[in-house]
Design a protein around this nucleic acid. Sequence first.
DNA 1: AACGGTATCTGTAGCATACACCTAGTCCGG
DNA 2: CCGGACTAGGTGTATGCTACAGATACCGTT
Lengths: 125, 125
Amino acid sequence: MTAEDPLLGMPRNFLRPCVLLLLGEAPSHGYDLLEQLRALGLEHVDPGGLYRGMRAMEQEGLVRSSWEPSDAGPPRRTYELTDEGREWLHAWAGALRDVRRMLGRFLDRYEALSDLAGSRPGARR
Amino acid sequence: MTAEDPLLGMPRNFLRPCVLLLLGEAPSHGYDLLEQLRALGLEHVDPGGLYRGMRAMEQEGLVRSSWEPSDAGPPRRTYELTDEGREWLHAWAGALRDVRRMLGRFLDRYEALSDLAGSRPGARR
DNA sequence: AACGGTATCTGTAGCATACACCTAGTCCGG
DNA sequence: CCGGACTAGGTGTATGCTACAGATACCGTT
């Protein structure tokens, strides 16, 4: 872990709720999800991890897949959300609201501290 | 990973910035940090993980420690923040602000979706 | 002498992530 | 017609955080 790591502090397993959200909006396939995820704020998503995760979520019953031919390129495995997946997404949203609240507490407290310190990065109390 | 997991979606390595924040406020020792962390919103912090993390951060130069006797009980290893640790805390705060923003985008988008769906947990579009 | 609270630490397994790599179909330019 | 680029899905593996289960030891009280 280095200080320059762009993924510092990202929520654990954040890929899953993001995928579920995108599939809640519209069915899609892995390669397309990779691009949509980038737009949602997740840079450098590991393709291998995504495809593995998709199959894991299918086994858990959160998504359902079917092969569909493509106009241009190899066939695609198209995923759609199941009812169970929709419930999971709902649970995730609740958990992430809690996380946001906790981050707020942390940041408020940090700002109070750095105000005391004169708000200079390397300043002592 | 189950849907009931209370740690669902917690930021990765969140323990570290929390500890750095607390030490930024006042020097402290491991056992005391365990209790303060609970008040900060982290339930069930693993003591082993905390002590290991403290020693790791000391090796990285983020904190400095010294043994201090206790009035009642075994001696304590008291930690204080170094200048480098203060810089890390600052970097963490910036990263966590980004994370909060991303969570906001996710949650806004989820709410837009669930509004369309009638906001019932199990409802289809 | 035994117990509960304080305090620090080790061992280990599971799991998510990161990185590297592979296969195969389609399209386009040379 | 051949090679490269793009689309699309996939495997193998190392690493590192996290969780769980303990061990050790000091101290005051009963």
